[in-house]
Nucleic acid binder design. Structure first.
Length: 196
DNA sequence: TAGTAGAACCG
DNA sequence: CGGTTCTACTA
């Protein structure tokens, strides 16, 4: 192998799943996606709206590893009930809704998302990997009285480092115990030089 | 409150 | 990595 930049296309793991109606099987949208390492799932009943809603709810419950994405084609017809669709998909289901003007835009959008040009892949449900990062873990361990176990416990309990820094002792206590809770709190609130 | 298992820290 | 001190939990 030469020391070229790794091929983006070959590096794509099979994480993208697209669920679509049978009638799209031969469309240009699906054809252009097939070459890009995207898994296509065909469903026959996606053509009726009521069944589609059911499918959406089902997929929302079954898929835990992927974040679902709903693409709607904006036509004059669909614009009429777009508000209803938006409310159902975004508000009720908590999914991502992307309106596109047509198949070309949809294909470009999906390819861009799946191949993730430097950005995060929205198909992959974001985990709490940001806080479980070894860097952050090592940082928290710098606090006196906090080792590996308590650092992990703290990062699992608090959703951000900022929350951790500004936490009151009584919030820290159930996680790391009374002694460490006071140590941590005074560490973040101590005066650097002579106190007040 | 005493004893023990485990965590943090230091050499 | 091993030993010591300190902490958290249970009886």
């Amino acid at each position: 192998m030469e020391s070229k930049a790794p091929s983006l296309l070959n590096a794509v793991p099979p994480y993208g799943h697209v669920i679509t109606s049978e009638k799209w099987r031969n469309s240009s949208l699906i054809q252009s996606l097939k070459g890009g390492g995207v898994n296509i799932l065909f469903e026959k009943e996606l053509e009726q709206e009521a069944a589609t809603r059911g499918k959406l709810v089902r997929y929302r419950h079954t898929s835990s590893r992927f974040q679902e994405l709903v693409l709607v084609e904006k036509t004059r017809l669909s614009e009429q009930n777009f508000s209803a669709v938006q409310k159902f998909v975004v508000l009720d289901l908590g999914l991502t809704l992307l309106p596109v003007s047509g198949q070309t835009e949809a294909s470009q959008l999906i390819s861009q998302i799946v191949h993730g040009e430097g950005r995060e892949n929205p198909f992959r449900r974001r985990s709490s990997s940001r806080l479980l990062d070894p860097k952050v873990l090592a940082l928290v361990q710098r606090v006196p009285g906090v080792g590996g176990v308590k650092a992990l416990a703290l990062l699992q309990e608090f959703s951000s480092v900022h929350q951790l820094c500004s936490a009151a002792p009584h919030e820290l206590e159930p996680v790391v115990g009374q002694a460490a809770a006071q140590q941590i709190h005074s560490f973040f609130h101590k005066a650097t030089a002579a106190g007040p």
